[in-house]
């Protein structure tokens, strides 16, 4: 991968390892962008899969429920790296080429999204199912007592409360998925960690390993921190007001 123009490289060679890292900030920034986008697509997929799956596990019956919960156990019981390589090698993805600027192979991105997303969905379904089941039976009875159908009661009374109660669990998923995007390293997806490795694998740059890793760790940390703070804020903004009785 072309990391920097030769002229830049020559300039960087004179200075220390820190300067080398800073000189390549563009590379790392692109990596961070890929990491964040991968996190976003995975969590979206995870939500789209996990929300109905949780509802099926809470209210379903028969083979649908069986199927959903078995798929959940398999997805939660397999290491993420195995899932990523399995989706990468096992699913016949058409040749998709790559995105020019960020230099991301779409097939790798798709495999990582599927693996991270479906696994996150398997965890999100647990969060959501638990939230549904934690809601007092009386809520459903009260809704039924005003004449709402079961479906209406679930939709207007159970789900809105369950979604709010799921927020802390979803928040965990954000940080877990964010950190696990680094495992896409296994299939060479050009996210933050892969790009970091590419940096110090350049000839004569092995002295900069420490510096590179410290910098990307800081980036991950800041991303985790920012994500958590944003979610805390959103959680407060959308929470049900509580009084001092």
């Amino acid at each position: 991968m072309a990391v920097a123009a030769p002229a830049d490289l020559a300039a960087v060679l004179q200075t220390g390892d820190w300067a080398f890292v800073l000189g390549n900030w563009r590379v790392l920034l692109l990596g961070a962008v890929v990491t964040v986008v991968l996190m976003a697509t995975s969590l979206t997929l995870g939500f789209l899969a996990g929300f109905p799956a949780g509802a099926v596990e809470a209210y379903g019956s028969g083979w649908t429920k069986e199927l959903v919960s078995t798929a959940g156990v398999v997805l939660r019981g397999t290491p993420i790296v195995v899932l990523i390589v399995l989706f990468f090698f096992g699913i016949p993805v058409p040749k998709l080429g790559s995105v020019p600027v960020v230099d991301v192979r779409l097939s790798a991105f798709l495999a990582a999204t599927l693996a991270l997303g479906l696994r996150s969905g398997a965890y999100q379904s647990q969060v959501f199912r638990g939230a549904i089941q934690s809601i007092d039976e009386g809520q459903l009875e009260a809704a039924r007592s005003v004449g709402l159908t079961h479906r209406q009661a679930v939709r207007h009374v159970i789900f809105p409360q369950a979604v709010r109660r799921s927020v802390p669990g979803f928040q965990n998923e954000f940080t877990i998925v964010l950190k696990d995007t680094s495992v896409a390293f296994a299939i060479g997806l050009a996210e933050l960690l892969t790009r970091a490795e590419n940096l110090y694998l350049q000839p004569g740059r092995d002295t900069a390993i420490m510096e590179v890793i410290i910098v990307i760790s800081a980036v991950y940390f800041v991303l985790t921190f920012a994500t958590n703070r944003t979610l805390d804020y959103l959680g407060d903004a959308f929470s049900i007001p509580e009084g001092s009785e």
Binding site: G138, Q139, A142, S145, V146, L148, R164
Partner: peptide, 29 residues
């Protein structure tokens, strides 16, 4: 559902919809 619309119920534990205001509790039905 029709029966329950015609027969109201008041519960020991209130069972107010926790995510809705007092007004929202009344308007849902």
């Amino acid at each position: 559902n029709d029966l329950r619309r015609r027969v109201g119920m008041v519960f020991q534990d209130f069972n107010l919809f926790a995510h809705r205001s007092a007004l929202g509790n009344v308007t849902l039905g």
